[in-house]
Nucleic acid binder design. Structure first.
Lengths: 166, 166
DNA sequence: GATTCTATGTATAACCT
DNA sequence: TAGGTTATACATAGAAT
């Protein structure tokens, strides 16, 4: 579509290539915008010039939708690079999950031990430690209960005396 | 570019819209391929139809380059909804973290209670439940320890007898 | 929904400034 | 290297299949 027909192959003359790039890039983006509007579609266009410069266009919604659907796109291309990148992005967050889950597991085990469960494989030393923890817990708990009770009694007495005064 | 000029606005007739979508989608991809070849560029086109179906095209190198450069693309949109939606993808993962963390907190509280800590705000009923749990734990634990000990003794005796036989 | 046909509107290659 | 002009090639709207 120009003064002459051209073959679709790399334009060797670099300034012609540059001019064609600028014009066709504009054309491509225009078409992308049009199909987006006409057909109520979400469109994204990404172009890297041979010099490595990035040009891109996204219909408004696409910025959102694209990110949401990125995994699907990468899936389709199951290339290592895509997969690796995605994994990379998730690595830190996955690490946190792992950390929290591990913490979770440890606490779960500790809790079960405190309930006398899953203790068969433990060493006598460990069993004794758990028993001590239980005993301490009981002691602490009973002290607290006693405090509560005392305070309760004191409050009751004070109320009684108030009543008497009235 | 057709029998009549059209305004660039959403095509209301849905079958016309569908036909136009298919035609222009093909056109867009063709143009993308051409600029890629002619100008030695890397091009990617992503189209989501209004029905949510994904169509995309990447020049060969782009499949790789795109993934490599994705962070740059997202950076460009960091300020706006891009960031929000990169996070959107993370939401499901974040939800899992939250869930696990919550589980974690609950266990932590339970553990502290079992150690007699942080019990001041508890109701008498709850305190009693904890004491019961502790007592049960102790009972279970002592049973297990006793079993162990018995088994240990039995094994020792058997060894002794073997030795005697030798 | 996809294809085909064809009149017409657009994009753009080659030039020019 | 960037922007404008124009002849031409191409894309596609509307209609039919």
């Amino acid at each position: 579509m120009g003064r002459g027909k051209i073959e679709i192959k790399r334009i060797e003359n670099s300034s012609n290539r540059q001019v064609t790039f600028a014009k066709r890039r504009a054309g491509l983006v225009k078409k992308a915008r049009e199909i987006g509007v006409l057909c109520d579609a979400e469109v994204g266009v990404v172009i890297f010039s041979s010099a490595g410069k990035l040009y891109d266009f996204w219909t408004p919604k696409t910025t959102f939708a694209f990110a949401v659907r990125l995994p699907r796109i990468l899936e389709k291309y199951q290339t290592n690079s895509g997969k690796i990148l995605w994994d990379e992005k998730h690595k830190s967050i996955s690490a946190e999950i792992d950390r929290v889950k591990k913490e979770n597991d440890n606490m779960q085990i500790e809790l079960r031990h405190m309930k006398g469960e899953d203790v068969n494989s433990l060493q006598p030393k460990e069993l004794i430690a758990i028993e001590e923890a239980l005993t301490n817990g009981q002691t602490n708990l009973r002290d607290k209960m006693m405090d509560h009770w005392k305070m309760h009694r004191r409050n009751e007495k004070m109320l009684e005396e108030e009543h008497k005064l009235l």
